[in-house]
Amino acid sequence: MAALEKPPAIENKLVRRDQFNITPQGIIHKPTDAAFTPNPGDAFSGIERLGQLGSKGPNGSGFGAEDVLKMMRQLWAEYVASNPQLFNL
């Protein structure tokens, strides 16, 4: 009897800073359309949209939702800290 083979591991695509578009109105991960839109008057609360996160491409790979959201939150925090005048901080 042959040993059961494990299916090949599906690797997540690398999440990079240049994949994000950041403006005072929010941040968008361009490949997946995942986004965060802040509420007026509070840069750190708002609407988080997952877009196509979790969808796999034709070769079975996709972006890891946790990786995208972690990078999105980090980049947004950096943007707000670098532009306090835009957010009444």
Rank of each mutant, 00 (worst) to 15 (best):
A2K: 14
A3V: 09
E5Y: 09
E5A: 08
A9T: 01
A9I: 01
A9L: 07
I10L: 07
I10C: 03
I10M: 01
E11M: 07
N12S: 12
K13A: 00
K13W: 04
K13I: 04
R16C: 08
R17A: 12
Q19R: 02
Q19G: 05
Q19P: 11
F20A: 02
N21M: 08
T23N: 06
G26A: 06
G26S: 05
K30L: 13
K30N: 12
T32E: 00
D33V: 06
D33M: 12
F36W: 13
T37F: 15
P38I: 04
G41R: 04
D42V: 00
D42P: 10
D42G: 00
F44Q: 08
S45F: 09
G46F: 14
R49F: 15
R49K: 15
L50K: 15
G51F: 11
G51T: 13
Q52T: 15
L53G: 08
L53T: 11
S55L: 14
N59Q: 13
G60W: 09
A65V: 07
E66N: 12
E66F: 12
D67L: 02
L69D: 02
K70L: 05
M71S: 02
M71C: 04
M72V: 00
M72Y: 01
Q74W: 03
L75E: 05
L75F: 00
W76C: 01
A77N: 10
Y79A: 07
V80C: 05
P84C: 05
Q85T: 07
N88D: 14
L89P: 11
